[in-house]
Every structure is written in structure tokens, then in C-alpha cells.
Amino acid sequence: MSAAAFLRPRALLGLIAGYLIWASCFVSLYTLQSVGCALALDLPAGPFGLNATTLVLVIIWLLHLAGLALLIHRTHRSHPENEHASFMRRVSLILHFSALAATLWVGFPVLFLPPCA
């Protein structure tokens, strides 16, 4: 992320990028869980005795976590040019970190709960 990026209108999008990923993760988990259960994919079909729905959910969750980690890395690396940009960077970092925590928080039950009970 270049320095001036924090001053463009798109910086607002940067501010909420972490939570957009969180929202995407939340919606994907909920939707795929519903569709998976509707199509009755909860029979064990994957490796480690995992059923297909759980496997899909875990993968989706991990992908979003990786995306957030990447976002945090890129935001962290950037150098703001003035006080306004530095404010945007600081708030973005708080938000991205909290979005990462929030994604961990809402997603971890997929690891041990049966998907369709």
C-alpha cells in the first residue's frame, strides 16, 4: 500500500477492508453450511473422518484468516506521509487486527461441532 493511499477516498475502503473479509467469511460459512446441510453433505466423505461440509467450512475459514493476515502485513508495512494518513493507518490496523480476532472467534466452532445437528 503506497503512502498516499491513506489520503484518497478509497482509504475508506481500506479502513473497512478487514471487516469486509470478516463479513465475507461469516456469510460464506453460514451459506455453505445451509447449502451443505440441504444437500445432505454431512455424511463422512472427506479425509480424517471429516464430513464434506465441515471440510469446506474449515477451508473457507482458513482462507479468510490468511487473507486477513496478508492485509495486516501490507498495512503494517506502509509508511504514512502525514498526520491524517498516520491516523488512518493506525485505525486501519486496529480494525484489521480486531477483524482477525473476530474471524477466529466466530469460526472456531466449525472445528468441533457437527454441521447439521
Binding site: Q33, A102, V106, C116
Partner: peptide, 15 residues
């Protein structure tokens, strides 16, 4: 609704 889905929303509600 299946319990797992409820847990997503329960977690977010506490969050």
C-alpha cells in the same frame, strides 16, 4: 436452525 449456525450468531452476538 442447526446448532452450528446458531453458534456462529451466538459468537457474533457476544462479540
Amino acid at each position: 436452525i442447526p446448532h452450528l449456525a446458531l453458534v456462529f450468531f451466538s459468537a457474533a452476538s457476544m462479540l
